[in-house]
Design a protein around this nucleic acid. Structure first.
Lengths: 213, 213
DNA sequence: GCTGCGCTGGACATAGTGTCCAACTCTTTG
DNA sequence: CAAAGAGTTGGACACTATGTCCAGCGCAGC
């Protein structure tokens, strides 16, 4: 039996990829329609995506994989905002910070239900929580680096630990943005106000904190 | 049949109250031992509390009632801290704020697993989420009042909305404290550092934010 | 010592998860 | 074009939960 096995069909691979994408879309749609991820059954998801439940389990290890993939796609693109802002010079300062926060808010605004679902599952699933935390750590590192530079340049108080301050801003800021986006209707003006408030609080509270002397 | 019914026994009422308290204690113990509330079954809880599952459902409407009662007992006492701090004059200023935050952290430190469980359930149960939110709103109102006074006295920038600023601090601050308490071991020094950092960020970022003129 | 309250154990209906497999269909390939 | 393997399906299974219901037991109170 030389090579009795047949090469995996590329057409099939394509169909499968399409089915997976369709499944993820379906989940996002159902979430947007008000379902909570927890109460969404695999039965329902598979049916709406046009697959049998068995096939669902061929494509995804379990329900958690769905949310992990949604989380990944939700977060991709966000980090870019941080990069742009951090490129000292272009749009730096308080205005730049506010603009960056606004961009993050607008990013999540496109898929608030998905964001809510990811946070919901993170509450009881370690895998998801760890994935989120890893992504957030990259942010914290960048902010800490920037704060250290500000301190060296004498532009903010030297009396705090950059890592801890970055952590406080990241944790708090993410929560503020999450609750705002999830709990309120889409409204560019209000988003701008929240972005400005958060930026001002962080700017004067940390990036330009007066020395205690 | 005049009064065939017997007066409800006070002894029984006492036993029942004791059993309920025991049940809540058991849940907290199991949570502290590492269980997540979601994966804790009523079967298990009832058994450990020495009741039958049927009796559990006589005492508690459902699992959610457990977490609601734990949330209430966890939150009671916290508000007091805010009151003390807000009594302008005694331990006011940055040091007072840091002290208040430290007290809040130390409060949650006594029952971190319970705190984690409450937040976990809040992620997917509207009842619990609403209960938490209601409590937080009281905080926000107080802080907003204080900020408005600071603005009138010219001690902080008049260019922000006190309500929104209070919301940002409360949402962010609560998250910072929650993650710190839940994710790290009990350590008074580190707790103090986080309390100081949070206080400084809020103080300079909001309570004493420079005017943008 | 009667009697009814409080509690129990166990059964039930319901609903979900994840696994497994025989059978079917569709696609590739010789 | 037809054989055969790849891909998919439906349905059954074993589990684990939740919340409801009820007959009956034993102890407390009269």
């Amino acid at each position: 039996m030389a090579s009795t096995t047949r090469r995996p069909s590329t057409a099939a691979a394509g169909r499968r990829a399409a089915a997976e994408a369709r499944t993820l879309d379906v989940v996002e749609r159902l979430l947007a329609e008000g379902a909570s991820f927890t109460e969404l059954s695999v039965e329902r998801i598979a049916a709406e995506a046009g697959l049998s439940r068995s096939t669902f389990y061929l494509y995804f290890r379990d329900k958690t994989e769905l949310i992990l993939r949604l989380a990944a796609s939700l977060k991709s693109g966000i980090f870019q905002v941080g990069v742009e802002w951090r490129a000292d010079g272009i749009a730096d300062g308080l205005e730049g910070l506010a603009e960056a926060y606004l961009q993050i808010i607008r990013h999540y605004r496109r898929r608030p239900a998905t964001y809510a679902a990811v946070l919901e599952v993170a509450g009881y699933d370690r895998t998801v929580r760890d994935a989120l935390q890893a992504g957030q750590q990259r942010f914290i590192d960048r902010i800490a680096g920037r704060l250290a530079r500000e301190q060296r340049a004498g532009r903010t108080s030297p009396d705090f630990d950059p890592e801890r301050a970055a952590q406080v801003m990241a944790w708090g800021g993410e929560q503020v943005i999450a609750r705002h986006v999830i709990d309120t209707e889409d409204d560019l003006e209000e988003d701008t106000r929240i972005a400005n408030e958060l930026a001002a609080a962080h700017w004067h509270g940390t990036y330009r904190r007066p020395s205690s002397t």
